Simulated scan of single mutants.
Amino acid sequence: MGEVILMIEIFDVRDKMEDLDEAIMVFWKQWGNQGNFKFYQDCIMNACHPSHDLPRFYIAVHNGTIIGTYALLRNDLISRQDLFPWLACLYIDLRFRGNNLGAQLLDHAARETEKLGMEKLYLCTDIDGYYEKKGWAFLTTGYMFNGEAAKIYEMAVDRKDKDNV
């Protein structure tokens, strides 16, 4: 059998305002908890202002349904405010995993970071093995506000114009 290619479109939420409420729900259901819906709503709604460079929230859409997310943030690890931007909220609906969609979102994030004129992208995670396979390099261990350790990864973003600056 041949490989099935799943077609998705990736949108900045601010470019798809008709899906804003659904996008907020998807982000919150995956990453939030019972007590912080307003946090996600406020953050995503305020990120939709056209003059803001960050944060940005992205959705992956398949057949009109949001099946994935990611965000670019100024900070995702309070103790490391010297590093930015951060990739956060990478998610693919369980029913669609195994179709290389996470890699598509990571590639999209790298292109968006490059468009913002930045040379590196960071993330923190407790996942082993996934990001290394996608070209990310372990940078160091960081610490959450509660003292828990988190692995920090970085990825260099290819900037074609860096020699012409």
Rank of each mutant, 00 (worst) to 15 (best):
G2R: 11
E3Q: 12
L6H: 07
F11W: 04
F11P: 04
D12K: 05
V13K: 05
V13D: 02
V13G: 04
V13W: 04
R14A: 06
D15L: 12
E18L: 11
D19L: 15
D19T: 15
L20E: 01
E22A: 10
A23N: 03
A23K: 01
I24P: 03
M25V: 14
V26F: 02
K29S: 14
K29N: 13
K29E: 14
G32K: 10
N33G: 07
Q34G: 15
G35D: 11
N36H: 12
F37W: 10
K38A: 11
K38P: 00
F39H: 11
F39G: 08
D42N: 13
C43E: 15
I44P: 04
I44L: 10
I44T: 04
I44K: 02
M45H: 15
M45Q: 15
N46M: 09
C48Y: 01
P50A: 09
R56A: 04
R56L: 06
R56I: 07
F57H: 06
F57Y: 11
F57D: 01
I59D: 02
I59G: 03
N63G: 13
G64A: 09
T65G: 14
I66G: 01
I66E: 01
I67T: 05
I67Y: 09
T69C: 07
T69F: 07
Y70R: 05
A71E: 05
A71Q: 04
A71G: 11
A71P: 07
L73H: 08
N75T: 11
N75G: 12
D76N: 14
D76E: 12
I78D: 13
R80M: 10
Q81R: 14
D82I: 00
L83Y: 02
L83C: 09
P85F: 13
P85G: 02
P85N: 10
W86M: 05
L87T: 01
L87I: 07
C89D: 13
C89T: 08
Y91K: 10
Y91T: 00
R95H: 13
R95Q: 13
R97D: 09
N99V: 03
N99C: 05
G102E: 06
L106A: 05
L106T: 01
L106C: 06
D107F: 03
H108P: 12
A109Y: 02
A110Y: 07
A110N: 08
A110E: 06
E112S: 07
T113M: 03
T113A: 07
T113F: 04
T113G: 07
E114M: 01
E114S: 03
E114N: 04
K115R: 06
G117H: 05
G117R: 01
M118F: 09
E119G: 04
K120L: 06
L121R: 05
L123P: 10
C124A: 10
T125A: 13
T125I: 10
T125N: 13
D128Y: 15
W136T: 01
L139H: 10
T140H: 05
T140Q: 08
F145P: 11
N146Q: 13
G147P: 08
G147Q: 11
A149V: 03
A149G: 12
A149P: 06
A149H: 01
A149L: 02
A150F: 15
A150L: 14
I152H: 03
I152D: 11
E154D: 07
M155A: 08
V157Q: 03
D158Q: 11
R159F: 05
R159K: 00
D161I: 02
D163A: 14
N164Y: 04
